[in-house]
Design a protein around this nucleic acid. Structure first.
Lengths: 375, 375
DNA sequence: CGGCGTGATGTTATCGATAACCTAAATTGA
DNA sequence: TCAATTTAGGTTATCGATAACATCACGCCG
């Protein structure tokens, strides 16, 4: 991709070239130039080339591309023709520098390995294209990683940022504010957003599920989440679980609260730990990744009757949880919709169609299925 | 983001500004300027500002940022200090235009909804960052969609392209060749790549699985794939299935070959269609998305013994197929590794560390588990 | 001791587009 | 009918960095 600017051929002319034309053989120079062009391949067409061919100025070509309505149909056609024959491809880098505005939206997710983030990405991508381009980075679940990604995006002068997280380093908050880039945070609603936020309350959702279980008559309810460290989602969910228990005057037992690494196997292990542990449990609420599904599959393997021996509830409902046997009681978050909304909020702000802060709570749904019994 | 260049404040000075300073009150102008700056917020620092503060030229700052080793430690420190106090953030748009080279790699996948593509993306992202930024577009499984994405990427002047697909429109092939952008195609190996390719042969893999089933004693083997239209992966896999049968002189029965939409439910339906159809079947090979898992879950729901009543084999092995009961016999493709390799191939080419075409076959693995019986 | 590489830094022109301003012809309207 | 406005398009300077070349001060060596 990198073409050496050999001999200034077809490229920049230094002052000296013009100032001292006599310091070398002109004829010879031209020969060298043509050879070099051949070696480097045909130089790509610029707007100027298109303009010349169409008999107009570059500015008119620029206008024709961005707002065809303001040029004469006749001129427009000649320009289109010229674009065709030159094979011209607009250079958005140059356009962005000049207009001080890109059409790239930056999106940062904790990881691409986790399907729940991907659903949101798809929502974002569906709404953005084809008007905007999407740049994606992953933070690796770390705040420092997020900061690095934000810095990279700001250097790229993205015109908007979507963060799949609502917890950030102070520097990230400051950088985004100072750059005055439209920013939407998605996912857990709770703390004050940098600017706009769309998502749901993990605390409320976990609280609602726990209350639902209590409502079904369960009293010894285990809770499993991903590790709480630097994971505000898991943290909030546990808070919701505790809140529900306390609200119903059920003792909160630390031995019933586990952290598990992501993965099916890990979910199964957590279930076994709880069921075979020192405390009696009648239901387990596993939240995050595929923990609940893993728990159910493990219960099936061991022949534990679900929900009679042990009830299992999950979160982040997906097609899989719906189709295992018995199907899992779960929480459905509108992840795809969150992506779509986040994208349109950024787009609106970029286009100047909205301003001010905004928080959009899209809620959640408790879905009762066969893995917990109905009173 | 878009700041109006009001009154030329702090911005461009037109010729007239300099040529006719007398056409307005200078003193007043300055007041307006300061007011406007306040409204628009502090103007962002440029390299020039940093340079001035550090008492060097902009070029030295540029050098310090890109190759710190070539500036004096003393100068470097002053520059770092100046960057700190000005809050300078490099403008990569400007840098890219000037150097005619970006640090953005474009990646096009059919869809983000499908986990198998995401695994490759993660591989790409892990290798690319932090040196390169990643731009992602989805084609929506259509060749025209891919073409649009390629055009957008070329306009952004990405320094490399990774296509998760090996079938393209002629225009795409031509555009990428003409732009001379390093390009890697991932996934199905078969046709001649645009430049480089890394992946596996879907045909060989499906053939191997079918032969494996034949080796286990199965003779009436059903085959289910995603719809073949515009999906070279599904197409190739069916070809491999047919090839294996023919190689063993087993009659190829069109009634045993089904196309199914993606999704667990769809896989279950396909299984039922085959098992309850007019033809006897003793094994079904479902390839693509989560069809095989869906089939197994449906068999469990109906109480069909797997593998005694019906054997089930899948492809695109994942943690889920490994953990259902019975665990699924499947094909494992090194998707994450493919992403990593694709990324390094592009990076090498961008850095000029390699050249010429390359095809890398990372193969596959047949994994025998409980859903098919062992002879 | 003078010439000459070498290493650190400065100067200039340029990358390819667009904002802001400008002009001339066409159109309107009173 | 002729000034006022609109329309279509041209001109110029600029966005913020970097490539290529220029320079200048050393230190080294024969």
């Amino acid at each position: 991709m990198k073409i050496k600017r050999a001999e200034n051929v077809g490229g920049r002319r230094t002052k000296r070239d013009r100032a001292a034309p006599g310091n070398r053989s002109l004829g010879n120079d031209k020969v060298i130039a043509e050879a070099a062009i051949k070696v480097a391949g045909r130089r790509e067409a610029r707007m100027e080339d298109v303009a010349k061919l169409a008999g107009v100025s570059a500015m008119t070509v620029s206008r024709a591309l961005r707002n065809p309505a303001i040029v004469t149909p006749d001129t427009l056609e000649r320009i289109e023709q010229a674009i065709e024959t030159t094979g011209y491809l607009p250079n958005r880098i140059a356009g962005s520098l000049s207009s001080r505005r890109t059409n790239v939206i930056g999106l940062i997710v904790p990881s691409l390995r986790n399907a729940v983030f991907v659903e949101t990405i798809q929502g974002v991508a569906d709404v953005l294209s084809p008007q905007f381009d999407l740049m994606i980075a992953h933070s690796g679940y770390s705040l420092k990683g997020e900061e690095a990604a934000v810095l990279a995006f700001l250097s790229q002068r993205v015109c908007g940022i979507i963060l799949h997280n609502t917890k950030h380093t102070p520097r990230v908050r400051r950088l985004i504010r100072e750059a005055a880039v439209p920013c939407v945070e998605t996912g857990n609603l709770g703390s004050a957003p940098i600017e706009m936020a769309v998502g749901f309350s993990n605390r409320k959702a976990a609280c609602a599920m726990t209350e639902h279980l209590i409502g079904q008559g369960y009293r010894r309810i285990g809770f499993v989440s991903l590790p709480l460290k630097e994971n505000d989602r898991a943290f909030e969910r546990r808070a919701g679980y505790v809140e529900a228990l306390e609200g119903h005057h059920i003792k909160v037992d630390p031995l019933l609260m586990l952290e598990a690494r992501p993965g099916l196997v890990s979910g199964g292990e957590a279930l076994v730990n709880l069921v075979e542990g020192r405390r009696k449990v009648d239901a387990v609420f596993l939240t995050g990744d595929v923990l609940a599904t893993g728990a159910l599959l493990e219960a099936n393997r061991r022949g534990w009757k679900v929900p009679d021996h042990i009830a299992i509830a999950g979160s982040d409902d997906d097609e899989l949880q719906e189709n295992v046997s018995p199907p899992l009681t779960s929480i459905r978050f509108p992840r795809y919709e969150i992506g779509r909304r986040a994208a349109s909020m950024v787009m609106d702000r970029v286009a100047g169609r909205s301003s001010g802060s905004a928080i959009l709570d899209l809620g959640f749904e408790i879905i009762q299925r066969g893995s917990t019994k109905v009173r």
